[in-house]
């Protein structure tokens, strides 16, 4: 077992436990967007930052990817952590204002102003869809392309994927696109946020054999005739 303290509380966890798991075990809330149980930790959204170590060498790390270490002192709500978290939420909100999840998180953290130029992006590149497609659906239909500001998620060559089974898991896990997916006009229903897939709901004739995780379908409100 590994002994560490989180916000002054002592906890012993098994080797390989992440700081996020340890903190949640103790009941300390840490917001996350790119984390999901059952998927490998990725560390993309940077919301789960916690402070470790002691001044002057204290630093912030992403708790979802950082393994518990013997004797580590972790602070989940220090002023440095909160400042970082608020700035990241402000950045998220400025880029993806339509996401209910992000709106709620921002509101809970007291984000009251918007200092960056407003954008309307579909995707925060958290990679949940990529990981669920690979790790749970064993499909590997979508992946990351390019890098930096041009990074995006989609299928190779932006063509309809040969390996996609239209399971809809990617949409199910997406934290950014929920709101827009409830449109019921087909062209708007295409959720570019997670993938350039044809959403299952549009191919009505295939609706019967679809392995849709959304039951009832949260992606669209089209009822089969």
């Amino acid at each position: 077992m590994i002994n560490l303290t989180i916000n002054g509380l002592h906890v012993a966890v098994e080797k390989g436990t992440t700081l996020l798991e340890a903190a949640r075990f103790l009941g300390f809330p840490i917001p996350t967007l790119c984390h999901m149980e059952g998927l490998s930790p990725y560390g993309a959204c940077r919301l789960c930052m916690v402070e470790i170590g002691e001044a002057p060498r204290a630093k912030l790390v992403s708790s979802c990817t950082y393994p518990a270490e013997e004797g580590l002192k972790v602070r989940t709500t220090s002023s440095r952590v909160l400042r970082a978290r608020r700035m990241i939420l402000e950045l998220l909100l400025a880029s993806c204002p339509q996401s209910k999840t992000i709106q709620d998180l921002a509101s809970a953290h007291g984000i009251r102003r918007q200092r960056f130029r407003q954008e309307y992006e579909d995707c925060i590149l958290c990679g949940l869809c990529v990981r669920i497609c690979e790790e749970q659906m064993m499909a590997k239909a979508i992946g990351f392309r390019s890098r930096g500001e041009n990074r995006s998620i989609g299928t190779p060559f932006d063509a309809k994927s040969d390996v996609c089974r239209l399971c809809g898991a990617c949409m199910y896990v997406c934290p950014a696109c929920q709101l827009r997916c409830t449109y019921n006009e087909p062209e708007k229903a295409i959720c570019g946020g997670c993938a350039n897939l044809t959403p299952p709901c549009i191919e009505k004739e295939q609706f019967d054999d679809m392995m849709c995780y959304m039951d009832p379908c949260v992606a669209c409100e089209i009822k089969k005739d």
Partner: peptide, 12 residues
């Protein structure tokens, strides 16, 4: 290797 991986590397 899956096409997604290869395309990902090619685009990176």
């Amino acid at each position: 290797r899956s096409l997604v991986d290869i395309y990902g590397v090619a685009a990176f």
